[in-house]
Amino acid sequence: MKSWGPPLLLLILAVVLYFALPFNLAFLTRILIMVVLVLSLDLVLGYAGIATLGQAALYGAGAYAAGLFAIHVWADPVAGLFVGAGAGAMLAFVSGLVLMRTQGLTLIMLSIAVASICLEIANKARDVTGGADGLRGIRMEPVLGLFAFDFIGKTGFWYALAVVAVVFVVLALLSRAPLGLSLRGIHESPERMAAIGVSVYWRRITAYTIGGGIAGIAGALSAQITQLVSLESFSFTLSAEALIMLILGGTGRLYGAVLGTLIFMFVHHWAAANDPFNWLFVIGALVLAVVFFLPKGVISAPPAITRLLKGGRHAGS
């Protein structure tokens, strides 16, 4: 544990935003949910180096599982989170058995294919999932039996913030644990890790399964707070946006995931509100600028600026 400063700062930022934008709580909550999703992608892609464009499959599985669980079995939010995590992890494990045998473009294509199949199944199983109309009628009980979900979304915000904090801490611990370190090793050199006796294939499946569980939690959160699960949960767009947020912020660092999500969501919100048709100009230019000037993501900006200010012979090294 190097420092508790940055996470505290982020927590304070969340609280400040809560009071600064009281009429945008739904938007802020949406950001928090996306943070969980992007963190899950960071574990899979940033730490374990598994390039996937199908994170939405795991998110959607969690969302539908939590939604159906709340409607048919028990509407307790926390139990629903576990169900969502279980569903995401299960799908990740099963699909991972095939996916983790491949890499590069093939892996990306396979992960997209899995998400597309999930989308079609959810679309066709109208009786269970509501098809294109979405899964409706989710009514949650109060969180921990104490905090009822309200119309403005205050409970939803704090509930989501708490989940983000827990996920963040778990991932921070995991990244320092032997498993996290071995994932980093696999990312950097699978051959060497195999040579020192690590089963690369199973480690990658483990990482993908944990990532799937966390993506499932994000989906479950979204189902519980918005009380609706739509087919969009499985969409390619969601996977792609999560990937953009992660690379924008910087992979392999938890703060990068948080920062990238914040920037993307705020730029999206602001540009789309100003000019809904041309916001792609803004995000396209932003993305290109980051790739060209900050190839390691926005998280690498402070050291880059320091370097620039120091200038002289040491610049650019």
Partner: peptide, 30 residues
């Protein structure tokens, strides 16, 4: 643009070309 992208890692390439796609879509849209 592309000449500079060749040297990037996979993820940077994905991000850069997605950015280009967005710009193309926005240009045609405009």
């Amino acid at each position: 643009i592309y000449r500079r992208i060749y040297g990037f890692g996979d993820l940077q390439q994905v991000l850069a070309t997605i950015g280009l796609t967005f710009l193309m879509i926005a240009s045609v849209n405009l």
